[in-house]
Every structure is written in C-alpha cells, then in structure tokens.
Design a protein around this nucleic acid. Structure first.
Lengths: 130, 130
DNA sequence: AACGGAAATGAAAACGGATGTCAATCTTAC
DNA sequence: GTAAGATTGACATCCGTTTTCATTTCCGTT
C-alpha cells in the first residue's frame, strides 16, 4: 500500500524545521524539506508554519533580507530566544530577564507583548565585529 | 518668485511625521503630508524615511498589517519607545530597563541589538482587552 | 474492500509593499 | 543667466506572501 503524501509531507517539514537549528524563512524550510519530499510545494511550507504558529510550535523572529523568519520552539516553560540578526543562530535564555522591562511598561499603562518579544534580536559572538 | 518644491516637500513630510503622534507607515506619512503638498509622491515619502533613518531621526517599529511602521525620535538621551501593536500609540520610557536583559544576553555570548529594540511592542491601556 | 465527505496539496494567479528607472524639475555654484 | 548635479514623481518592476481551485489524500462508515 502506497503511503499517503500528507503524512510524509508533514513529517518532512517537521524534521526540516527541527534540523535547521537556526532561524529560517519559509523558503529555507521548503528547500530543506524538499530534499526528502521533492514534490512538496512552497505553499505547503507556508501553511505548515501558520499551523505551527497556532499550535505554539514556532515563533516569529522578525525578518532577514526581506523574508519573515521563524524559530522552532519547544513549548516547555517560560523562556526567550536570542536570535542573531545576521546568521540566525539561536540561544535559549532560561528564566525571564524581561520582568523589569514589563514592570516599567506597566507603570506607564502598557502591557508588554510577550509574543512579540519571545524572540529577541541580537548578534552572536561569531557575527559581532571585533 | 515661485518657491521650490523640494523645500516644501521636505517641510511637509517632517511636519506630517511630527504631527501624527504615533507609529506610522510610509503610506500614512504620504497621505498626511499630501494634505499640504498634494503633488507629493509616495516614492518621496519612502526616501524621506530612509534619510531620516540614516540621520537617527526615525526608528523602525516593526510592521502593522503588512506595512513597515516607524516612530519619530528626538535623538536626546538614552530611551526606548513602547509602541502599541494595535493602534500605534507611543510612550517614551526614560532610562533603560533593558540592562538586565542585555547582561543576560552577554553572559551567553550575545550582543543585544539596541537598534532593533529601540521600539518595544506592547498594548496601550485603550487597546488592552478588559 | 468500496464509498463519500472533509481536509490537504501544489501549480498558478493574484496581491501588495517596497524598490528601481528615468525623464522632468529644482537647486546651487559659478 | 547658465550649467552641473541633486531631487522629484509617475510608472514599471520585483519579490515575498496569500488566494484560488482542481486534484489528491485521508478516514469513518458501510
């Protein structure tokens, strides 16, 4: 019995997302997953990311040269990601160093957006000019 | 003697940017400045924002429904802006509540991006659901 | 195993924000 | 005033993303 395309696609996309190991664009996810499933379409990669975002499996991580980029996110415990704006490298920041900022915002009537700040832009040591 | 178009455009754009009082897109800047200078083109609005960014007069403030948005920024002293992701309202946050975060990032070899975090996403009290 | 409705897929078209092009206009130096 | 150079704005183009739609796949029911 020929296995279905759907399940294989989903698996290939998920493995691609997990194996990339850094922030990725929809195009990069597509290219990576395509090595396993050559017929997989770009539209499906976009749709997978949408679904993952709804499920909390992926976070928006801004844009890199015009493309929206994302980071995979195990949903365990409160944490933030540092994302290198140059190469996409990711480091997980355990605990929450955002509390002082959140309180400062609250004192002027603003509720800081946890979702939008889940991924924090920066530069990894490789990409920081000496 | 007919005054030049260039100077008038520049003035209209600058006044528009300052008068809007919240985060704005290039299209919004264009529409506002156009009330003074009806012949002013959208391209010129984009170019003004580019120039302002180089001069530190404006900061990127993410995107709102697909459009990049910006906030005007007096270059005086270190501060951050809280920008409402729904309505674009701005509050200036004096001092820097980002220090703990910056240090946490530094401890794992990341240099936090001051520029990218100049404008912090959140929700103003009006737009926060009760 | 066969059927049927619901969901997923991928190719192509449509969309929209941003950028590039270029002739016309304006500014500034002389 | 004139010429060289910068600025402008209409239009074309680019490109990431979304929409569309006919086809295929999935899965519960018979």
């Amino acid at each position: 019995m020929e296995q279905g395309r759907n399940r294989r696609n989903r698996t290939a996309l998920l493995e691609a997302g997990r194996s990339i190991g850094r922030a990725f664009s929809a195009r990069e996810l597509h290219e990576t997953a395509r090595r396993d499933q050559p017929t997989l379409g770009l539209t499906t990669a976009y749709r997978a990311i949408d679904r993952w975002r709804d499920e909390g499996l992926v976070e928006d991580a801004g844009t890199r040269s015009g493309e929206a980029v994302f980071v995979m996110c195990g949903a365990d415990g409160h944490h933030h990601h540092l994302v290198c704006v140059d190469c996409g490298a990711i480091t997980t920041l355990e605990g929450c160093a955002l509390t002082p900022l959140r309180e400062a915002a609250a004192s002027v009537g603003f509720e800081l957006s946890d979702r939008a700040l889940a991924s924090l832009p920066g530069r990894c040591s490789r990409c920081t000019p000496a």
